[in-house]
């Protein structure tokens, strides 16, 4: 760096998070920029492949009752190759969910493609959201590993929940590797289409949605969904202004 007199790209760099003005060694990346990239990629890979510390997450979720289940995908490799297996409970897993009193809302936490996101944010979002769901019957929290979004349908149906809030680790990028998503599904049952869910994404600490913002949106959508009896494309999230919080806007049939 000693031979860099002045960086003509400094000002432009403010306008984009893109990796511009990196300089070059011949036609190659300079060592520093190359290592920066490797670090970002390594962090994203670790987010995908590190196992979720379920015990630590369970402790953070107290006082909620926690049920642990696994999907039909036996390991990370089969999870990545077989999306269908990550959407289903493993053999016998449904038994521990059955024969419970019905509830209005059940939280399901799925590791998805970023255990780092779930580890960092899921418990905080559950606590923040449940505080805003007063008056509703909340079921146990289910932690599902090697799991994709649709596993919430089977879990919710077995629990007898009217609505499932599924929190999932989103596909990591180089800049943000721990982004959490939330999917709300009314009347969960296997075979539910993605168009029948509402989704919040980008819950994370690097300029993403805060826990409070996420909790407010989850609570608004939950109440609107339970009142109207649907989630998905027919239910538009309008919680941006607080005045509308009790007046859900429904469009279409």
């Amino acid at each position: 760096m000693s031979d860099v007199v002045k960086d003509p790209w400094a000002k432009l760099r403010e306008s984009t998070p893109a990796r511009i003005g990196l300089g070059r060694s011949g036609a190659g990346l300079p060592t520093g920029a190359n290592l920066d990239f490797q670090f970002a990629h390594a962090r994203a890979r670790d987010a995908v492949h590190s196992a979720l510390d379920v015990a630590a997450l369970e402790a953070e979720l107290a006082p909620f009752e926690v049920i642990r289940v696994t999907s039909a995908a036996l390991d990370r490799a089969s999870y990545l190759r077989r999306p269908d297996l990550g959407r289903k409970l493993g053999a016998g897993e449904a038994e521990q969910l059955n024969a419970r009193p019905p509830c209005d809302v059940a939280f399901v936490i799925a590791d998805g493609l970023s255990s780092a996101a779930v580890q960092a944010h899921a418990a905080a979002v559950v606590h923040a959201a449940s505080e805003k769901l007063g008056g509703l019957i909340l079921g146990p929290v289910t932690i599902a590993t090697q799991a994709r979004v649709a596993i919430g349908d089977e879990v919710g149906a077995a629990l007898g929940a009217r609505l499932v809030v599924l929190l999932v680790g989103e596909r990591p990028g180089l800049t943000v590797a721990d982004s959490l998503g939330a999917y709300l599904t009314y009347g969960p049952k296997p075979g539910t289409k993605d168009s029948q869910r509402n989704c919040l994404s980008n819950i994370h600490g690097k300029g993403g949605m805060s826990y409070d913002q996420a909790a407010a949106k989850i609570a608004w959508l939950t109440r609107a969904a339970l009142e109207r009896g649907l989630t998905g494309t027919g239910l538009k999230e309008e919680s941006g202004s607080l005045e509308t919080e009790n007046a859900p806007l429904i469009d279409g049939a």
Binding site: P17, A18, R19, L22, A27, F37, R171, L174, T175
Partner: peptide, 23 residues
């Protein structure tokens, strides 16, 4: 730029790589 597509969240080639192929 730098092989990192910040909008689509995946990695492609860097501008440097095109220069490498030509050089």
């Amino acid at each position: 730029p730098g092989a990192d597509d910040i909008m689509l969240n995946y990695q492609s080639l860097s501008f440097h790589d095109i220069a490498y192929l030509r050089n």
